[in-house]
Structures are given as structure tokens and as C-alpha cells.
Amino acid sequence: MEMKEETSAGMLGRPKGGAADTVSEKLREYYVSIQNDGIPEKFLDLLEKLDEAEKAAKK
């Protein structure tokens, strides 16, 4: 299933007036700002550990 960012975001961003656009834009701006923080180191470490533990268990 493919994500179509433009489709759903566009539906939300094109209602009656300017106010709705502002809400949609702010929401996306907020979300993207969090997304751009990247992945915290602790999550990368956690995945690494899970992966290693799984490999070790198989030996």
C-alpha cells in the first residue's frame, strides 16, 4: 500500500477559507518539525540490541 501524502493532506488543506489552511499548515509544520529531529540514539541502540539478541539466540 503506497502512501499518497498529497492526496489526504490536500483534502484537508483545501476547504472553505484561509483559517482552515492555517490549521492544516500549522499541523504539518509541527509534525515535520518533530520528524526532522531524526531518530533518537536510544532507539537505534535498542534496535541494534534486539537484532543482536535475535542473532545470538539462533546460534
Binding site: 502512501m3 489526504s8 493532506a9 484537508l12 499541523l27 509541527y30
Partner: peptide
């Protein structure tokens, strides 16, 4: 509103 307006999911 987050799923539709920001995460890019369809309804």
C-alpha cells in the same frame, strides 16, 4: 486529524 492531515494516510 494527525493521521489525515500530517502522517499522509488516506481516510
Amino acid at each position: 486529524i494527525i493521521l489525515i492531515g500530517a502522517s499522509g494516510f488516506s481516510y
